[in-house]
Design a protein around this nucleic acid. Sequence first.
DNA 1: GCCAACGTTGGC
DNA 2: GCCAACGTTGGC
Length: 157
Amino acid sequence: MPKYWLMKSEPDVYSMDMLARDGKQNWDGVRNYTARNNMRAMALGDLALFYHSSCEPPGVAGLMRISKLAHPDPSQFDPKSPYYDAKSKREAPRWDMVTVEPVQKAPTFVTLAELKADPKLEGMVVRERGVRLSVQPVTPQHFARVLDLAGLRLKKG
DNA sequence: GCCAACGTTGGC
DNA sequence: GCCAACGTTGGC
């Protein structure tokens, strides 16, 4: 059983289009323990919604797949990186990243306002005010509904 | 640009 | 181990 996720990125920094162009990307820079733990709970083949945050409008821009399990994020050891963490030791890395690959850009961008307006998406974490978790779990029901709104269709296995 | 809500840090 | 202060997230 695959699990489902939502992962936020500011599109100015990294967007769904860039992921589609790059083919795969290390999801680095996560510096929140809950978000990190969610990445550690991911399995190969898990699907994630690519969410654009801090932009107008915020919302779901596409679908991606986890292609490499959580492994240490090298930026934590790089003093020149904005994600540098002086307290993290190489023998005990504090921060992980996963590698993601694009599945498909959403034919229809689904805005946060639309997510909030949909009765079927009640309880979805991203809708909650003040919750700023950048890697969050999504229920299978919510996930299927968002794919529907986005015009995304999974190939039948 | 504002600022509420949050997570983290560090003094005690 | 409490909790105030601080820095950050992220919608608006």
